[in-house]
Every structure is written in C-alpha cells, then in structure tokens.
C-alpha cells in the first residue's frame, strides 16, 4: 500500500465523526444552507440549483445563451426513445415505475428499508432492465445517462424532499455520506468540503468553485469539457481523481451514500436536470 494511502486512511479515521448517536440531519441541513446563504447574500436560495452560475454574473450570461439551444437536447430525445423502447417481453422502462415513469425522478435517491440501502434512480433503471431480461447499462455516460436526462426532464420543477426513514441503517447511510463529504482524501489531502464549502466562490487557478448546495439538482450534465453527457457519479469520480485519490465505483455504496447526504443538504431546492456546464 502506498504511504499516502495510509496517511489518508489515518486522517479519515481521525476525522471520524461519531456514528448515529449524535446524528442530527435536520440540524446539519439548516447549518449547511445558512452557511451558503450568508456566504452568498446576493444569491436567492432558489438559484443555488445553477452551480457556479448562481454566484458569477459574468459566466452566467454566456451560460444563459447556451441554454437557449441546450447541448443536452439530443440526449433527452435519445433518452425518450430508449425509455419507450419495448423490451423483448413487450414491456418498457416506464413499466417498472409509478405513473409510467413520468415525473418521478424526485423520488430518488431513497433509503429502501426492505433492502437496507440507498437506491438511486440509475440503479432502479438498471434493475428494471435486468428484471425484464435485458442487459444493464454503464453508469457514467452513454445510453443510461440519456435515459436519466429524459427522466430528469419530466421531473423538472418538483421540490427536492429527501427523507430519512426511522431506521438506524438509514441514519448510518446518511452519516457515511456525510463523512465521505468531509474526509480528506488522496495524495493532495483535500475533502469535497474544502473546495465546495470553505472555498466556494474562490478560484482554483482559472476555475471558480461552485457551492455544494444544489450540486445534485441538475444532473446528468452536458459538460463541454467532456463533449457529452455525464452522470453525477462520473463527476464524483472526476473530483476524487483531481486530488489523486482513486475514484470509487459508480453506484457503489460510497457514492450512493454521498448522493443521499448531498441530496438531503439540498432539500427545498428544485429539480432542474439535465444541465449544461463548462
């Protein structure tokens, strides 16, 4: 094992927050949101769904021009076709969800008390495929990202309302996501919070750092750097690699719990995916 991996583990353990006993997600959420309201007094709460464009009037103008002919439009169409495509057994993706799968992305992620784990929309779509004898899709980009884009699109305007059911395992999932968010990682020894809380609004070289509040609302995202659509977990992986940490597996337990925590922190905002970013 490399030296710095050991250091990272050691510092993550030092940071280790007490599990469950003192958990107070509602208190966390309020403190989290108040922090950003104070840090960016000119940004209306609702606007935090727009990432760095919520805090930077200059790049916002360009972005608004791009959004008039959104680069993710083709992906939404492709996603709609895949969403409606008949499986060999005659069913389709919508058959696995309430309301035919329309406008239901806001129900995800959720803590499934029967399974004892966080279930994301990406996982639910793939499980729908395998349950119907179809092949699952890759989690970071491509066809699944397009299906998620379409499902996010039909959900636009709904409120983020993440819940933590009365089940100690749900609190544990929340706490492990929270720890992930605040733990130093990688040879560069940085946490998500270092960049997207403490230094949100500051520049790392030429890049303005976005506030973590609202991070989850607009995924999947068409990123000009990627030249295509990518999922939230693709982004998590990219940000882990920036600090020379190994990315975790997309839709593995670590990133699912992280998504759960980050979604809870964004409660009260509006779902607005898919989005476009630099």
């Amino acid at each position: 094992m490399k030296k710095w991996v050991i250091y990272t583990l050691a510092s993550a353990m030092l940071l280790g927050l007490p599990l469950v006993s003192q958990a107070d997600p509602e208190g966390d959420r309020k403190a989290f949101q108040d922090y950003f309201k104070n840090r960016f007094p000119n940004t209306p709460f609702e606007d935090f769904i727009n990432g760095v464009y919520a805090i930077d009037p200059e790049s916002r103008e360009q972005w608004e021009a791009i959004e008039e002919f959104p680069p993710y439009e083709i992906a939404i169409e492709e996603g709609e076709q895949l969403f409606n495509k008949k499986f060999a057994n005659g069913k389709s993706v919508g058959s696995c969800f309430p309301n035919g799968g329309n406008g239901i992305a806001d129900q995800y992620p959720f803590f499934d008390t029967k399974r004892g784990e966080v279930v994301t929309l990406a996982v639910a779509v793939n499980e729908c495929l395998t349950a119907n004898g179809e092949k699952p899709m890759k989690y970071k980009k491509g066809p699944l990202a397009s299906v998620l884009a379409y499902m996010a699109f039909t959900t636009r305007g709904k409120k983020v309302d993440e819940k933590i059911p009365k089940d100690p395992r749900a609190l544990e999932a929340y706490e492990s996501g929270k720890q992930f968010f605040y733990a130093r990682r990688g040879q560069l020894n940085m946490s998500c919070a270092h960049c997207h809380v403490d230094n949100s609004g500051n520049k790392i070289r030429a890049d303005l750092l976005s506030p973590a509040l609202g991070h989850v609302t607009h995924f999947p995202v068409y990123r000009s750097k990627w030249g295509e659509l990518g999922t939230l977990h693709r982004r998590f992986g990219g940000c882990n690699e920036q600090v020379r940490a190994k990315a975790f597996e997309a839709q593995g337990p670590e990133y699912r719990n992280l998504e759960y925590f980050m979604t809870y922190m964004s409660n009260g905002l509006t779902w607005n995916g898919p989005g476009s970013r630099k």
């Binding site: 030296k3 710095w4 250091y7 040879q187 560069l188 020894n189 940085m190 270092h194 960049c195 403490d198």
Partner: peptide, 18 residues
C-alpha cells in the same frame, strides 16, 4: 501546512511526498 492550520486546504507537499 496542516501543522500550522489543521483544516487547511493546502496539500502537505513534503509529508505526503508530493
């Protein structure tokens, strides 16, 4: 730098052999 500010974002260039 973490010796001077435990919460700093600045990487420990020597300690972590960056």
């Amino acid at each position: 730098e973490t010796k001077f500010n435990p919460n700093t974002i600045m990487p420990p260039f020597g300690k972590y052999k960056i």
